[in-house]
Amino acid sequence: MLVHKAYKYRIYPNEEQQRLIHQMFGCCRFVFNYFLGLWKGTYTATGKGLSYNTCATELPSLKKDYEWLKDADSIALQSAVRNVADSFDRFFKKQNQAPRFKSRKYPVQSYTTKYTNGNLAIKGDQLKLPKLGWIRFANSRATDGRILSATVRRNAAGKYFVSIVCEVDVQSLPQTDKHIGIDLGLKDFAVGSDGMRVAHPKAFRKHENRLAMWQRRMARRTKGGSNWQKAKNKAAYIHEKIANVRHDFLHQLTTKLIRENQTISIEDLNVTSMLKNHRLAKAISDASWGEFERQLSYKSQWYGRIVKFAAPFAPTSQRCHGCGFIHKEVKNLCVRQWKCPSCGTVHDRDENAAHNIKDVAV
């Protein structure tokens, strides 16, 4: 099965390469904003937007008006035009909000270029990128398949990364008969119907006090000053640490579940609505249930596994998985163990829910 797989590496550009990267950021941002404004103006005047082909044909004349655009990677500029068209397509399909103008003050900047005529290549710990030449990078794992594109990104902490998208032939894993139901929670991240318990990493909670300290320091300092910038970088480093811990945990867990089980049943949680509960919103955000579901879904497609979903309002915690009796008092989250009044079975709240999710998921 051919899939698009991304490999993310940290790159270490020298001063001249950093200058060229920032120049590329600015050129792509200018092209995106220009055609976004043109698109909005045309829509306001005529009631119809612009297509990608219409914008792409105007790009050469834009380069004549702004000579400095010729110094940038032409494919990256075309990708910026494509991003405008794609963002409006998703907006009209109600997949995201209306596209907005990009700002140079936004801490995360990026641009995308595509492979053509050998402009992207890897040799040892050196990576070849258009207009930048060979850049040293942390070659932590070998890429597979055919290189399609590369996205250069600078994060809020000032580090530079590249994501290389390759077309990879992924082989399905050997089939197994194991079927597991998983109940996601806040006390334990996941509890399986087979007795598996996965502790919650609580990545944000562990770094919350340190992050708050640097955010307070940043608030007390003059905005834009050198000390304010130092505090801002410290806060960005902590946010990066939290994200790395969370992603590493989720990737390891989802990969383990995919390798060991043929069918995985989880609850289809409406996380957006659950975040409206202000008492639990911070803990729910720290859990990243949505990212867990996303990783599990695409990995199951890659490796020939099945992911089933239980209805979000099914009484999985209240129903006895032995006799089917529904105990209303178990709605209280403080009830961690309960005895079924009908059959007398003593249940652990989360394990019982995992069994019911396994039974009702479709």
Rank of each mutant, 00 (worst) to 15 (best):
90 R>E: 11
91 F>W: 10
91 F>D: 01
92 F>P: 06
92 F>Y: 15
93 K>Y: 10
93 K>V: 05
94 K>C: 08
95 Q>R: 13
95 Q>K: 15
99 P>F: 09
100 R>N: 14
100 R>V: 13
104 R>C: 05
105 K>M: 10
105 K>Q: 15
105 K>C: 09
105 K>P: 07
105 K>G: 01
105 K>D: 13
106 Y>T: 10
106 Y>R: 11
108 V>E: 14
110 S>M: 07
110 S>K: 11
111 Y>Q: 10
112 T>D: 01
112 T>M: 09
113 T>L: 07
113 T>N: 09
114 K>I: 08
115 Y>L: 08
115 Y>A: 14
116 T>E: 12
116 T>H: 15
116 T>F: 11
117 N>C: 12
119 N>R: 11
120 L>K: 08
121 A>Y: 13
122 I>K: 08
122 I>T: 08
122 I>Y: 08
124 G>R: 13
124 G>C: 09
124 G>Q: 12
126 Q>S: 15
128 K>A: 06
128 K>M: 09
130 P>E: 03
131 K>H: 13
131 K>G: 03
132 L>R: 06
132 L>G: 07
132 L>H: 08
133 G>P: 07
134 W>D: 01
135 I>S: 04
136 R>T: 13
136 R>L: 06
136 R>E: 04
137 F>G: 00
137 F>K: 05
137 F>N: 02
137 F>V: 03
139 N>M: 04
141 R>K: 14
142 A>R: 12
142 A>P: 00
142 A>Q: 13
144 D>T: 05
144 D>V: 00
145 G>Y: 02
145 G>V: 03
145 G>C: 05
146 R>K: 15
146 R>Y: 07
147 I>T: 13
150 A>N: 02
151 T>I: 01
151 T>S: 12
151 T>Q: 10
152 V>S: 00
152 V>W: 00
152 V>T: 02
155 N>A: 05
155 N>W: 02
156 A>Q: 12
158 G>W: 12
159 K>E: 12
159 K>C: 08
159 K>Y: 07
160 Y>C: 06
161 F>G: 02
162 V>A: 03
162 V>L: 03
163 S>A: 15
163 S>L: 07
165 V>P: 01
168 V>M: 04
171 Q>L: 11
171 Q>H: 11
171 Q>T: 12
177 D>P: 00
178 K>T: 12
180 I>C: 04
180 I>D: 02
181 G>P: 06
182 I>N: 00
182 I>Y: 01
182 I>D: 01
183 D>V: 04
183 D>Y: 02
185 G>W: 01
186 L>C: 08
187 K>S: 12
188 D>M: 08
189 F>R: 00
189 F>M: 04
190 A>L: 11
192 G>V: 03
193 S>T: 07
195 G>Q: 06
195 G>A: 03
195 G>P: 05
196 M>P: 00
197 R>C: 12
199 A>Y: 00
199 A>P: 01
199 A>T: 13
202 K>M: 10
203 A>C: 15
204 F>I: 05
204 F>Y: 14
205 R>F: 09
206 K>T: 11
207 H>K: 14
208 E>N: 12
209 N>I: 10
210 R>S: 14
211 L>F: 09
211 L>V: 06
212 A>M: 08
213 M>R: 15
213 M>V: 10
213 M>L: 14
215 Q>G: 05
222 T>Y: 02
222 T>K: 15
223 K>C: 06
223 K>N: 08
224 G>L: 08
224 G>N: 07
